[in-house]
Structures are given as C-alpha cells and as structure tokens.
C-alpha cells in the first residue's frame, strides 16, 4: 500500500500535462459561451480575474489561513488521536473490540449528520476541526492496525534477544514498518479533510472561512467569486496533496523495505 501514482494515472510528461489542462480550460470556456449566463456558469478567465481581485485583499489571505489552520489542525489531531488509539487497541484486544463498532459507525454516518450534530454540541468555529478528526479517524485506525499486524515478528524477536528498549523498538522497527501504511492514510485522509472541512464551514457558516465565503457568494449571487473560492480550495488541496506525496515519497525511500532474506 503506497501513495505513489500509477503510470496510468500520471500524464507522461509536462507537455502532455499542459495540453490536457488547456483542453479542459477550452472546454470550460466553450461551455460558458454556450450557456451564456454568468449567474449560473462563469468562464475560466472571469474566475481568474475574480481570483486576482480577491488575492489583492488581506481578508482573502486571512480567510485562507484560518481554513488551513482548521483543516490541518483537525487532520493532525485526528491522526495522532486515532493512531494512539489504534496502537492501544492492537495491544489490548478488549479496547479493539470496544472501539471497532464506534469506528464503523463513524465510517458509515453521513458527513452532513455529523456536521449538524457537531454544530449542536460545539461552537461553529470548532465544527470543521471536529469533522476533520472524524474523517481521518477511521482511515488512520485501520491503516495503523493493519501496519502493526504486518510488523515482522522475527525482527521483534531479534529486538527482544538484544534487549532493545521500547523506544528503540518503536524508532527502529515499528515506525519504519508503519510508514507505507501511514503514507496511504495521510494522503487519502487529508484529501477527505479538505472536502469535509470546507463542507462543514459552508453549513456552519464558520467566520471567517472559505466555506462561509462560498456560502456568501452564493447568497449574494456573486458567481465568479464563488467559482474563485472553489478554485482556491482545489488549488490548496492540490498543493497539500503534492507536499504530502513529496514528504511521504522521501520517507518511503528512506525506509524502503526490500526484505533481505
């Protein structure tokens, strides 16, 4: 299990990538021309103009910063909490049996239900954080459990014979063994956090937030800005996805696990 992109998913070179992007932009522009109703559908160049206009204001950047903080904060908290719980559940089977139904419920419950419930239980500024925690928890839980089950028992036995301390075992055996599983969990978890976190901001009208900005532009029918805010979310998601893939790629290379025997 890795986060690497398969050859089929990745355009073969930069030229091909640019060509594909241009074709999509041209199709978008064409569709906008056909619809010819800016309130419903905005052309890409008008979205770009709106984006540049928004980008020239300080509140735009403050809003982005706070949304990133909520999404990443929720992701990191959710990741740490569920990784810790999964590690404890691996060690104590009762805890695993106790928490597994809760994880299944979290996995099956619609995000919107959680958003409404979280809105009832907490302040609207915390709802996106709570939602991100809930989104990432089942993914990290199952990946960490799967990774721990796959840790090489022979290496653990070697560690026992040579009296490696628990900290040394975690550093030298558990962490490197878990990295491929974590790479998958981090990639898909963060993607989900972006979608669900912004959805939570829209529903809760968290202030200030990208989600609330999308809601307001819809309410006041400023469609070009609504598209621009949505494009901002996509751009941010892609940037963070690339960053995660870059760092995870480095970690995977560092701890590449060809089995020697």
């Amino acid at each position: 299990m890795t986060t690497s992109i398969t050859q089929a998913e990745r355009p073969r070179n930069r030229t091909e990538y640019l060509l594909v992007a241009l074709i999509w932009l041209a199709l978008w522009e064409l569709l906008a021309l056909i619809i010819n109703e800016e309130v419903l559908f905005v052309s890409p160049h008008k979205v770009l103009v709106a984006l540049i206009r928004l980008g020239g204001t300080l509140p735009f950047w403050q809003t982005i910063f706070l949304s990133i903080l909520r999404v990443l904060g929720g992701f990191v908290l959710g990741y740490l909490l569920s990784a810790l719980l999964a590690a404890l559940a691996f060690r104590f089977s009762f805890l695993k049996a106790f928490l597994s139904p809760a994880i299944s419920v979290i996995k099956a419950t619609p995000v919107a239900s959680f958003i409404i419930l979280a809105l009832m239980w907490s302040g609207k500024n915390f709802v996106p954080v709570i939602i991100c925690i809930l989104m990432v928890a089942p993914i990290v839980w199952s990946n960490v459990l799967e990774g721990l089950a796959a840790v090489d028992g022979d290496l653990l036995e070697m560690a026992q014979v040579y009296g490696m301390s628990p900290a040394a075992r975690i550093r030298s055996i558990y962490v490197p063994s878990l990295i491929p599983y974590n790479a998958a969990a981090v990639g898909s978890g963060l993607g989900l956090c972006w979608k669900a976190g912004i959805a939570a901001e829209v529903i809760c009208r968290t202030l200030p937030s990208i989600g609330n900005s999308i809601w307001e532009t819809k309410f006041y029918i400023i469609t070009d800005e609504m598209f621009a805010w949505t494009a901002t979310v996509v751009i941010l998601s892609v940037i963070f996805d690339r960053l995660i893939k870059f760092f995870m790629g480095r970690l995977l290379r560092k701890y590449k696990t060809e089995v020697a025997q």
């Binding site: 022979d154 290496l155 014979v161 030298s172 055996i173 490197p176 560092k254 590449k256 696990t257 020697a260």
Partner: peptide, 24 residues
C-alpha cells in the same frame, strides 16, 4: 546476556550494515 545469530539473519532492512549494529 545471550546474543543470537539467527539462521534467517534478521537485519533491519531500512538500516545500513553499520546502523544495524549501532541499533542494538
């Protein structure tokens, strides 16, 4: 204290030869 040279070698695959020794 016993040291065991296992038949299956059991080296940490992500560490170098030197790091495998320094790890224990």
């Amino acid at each position: 204290r016993a040291a065991f040279v296992f038949q299956e070698q059991r080296l940490l695959p992500w560490y170098s030869a030197l790091e495998n020794i320094r790890a224990v």
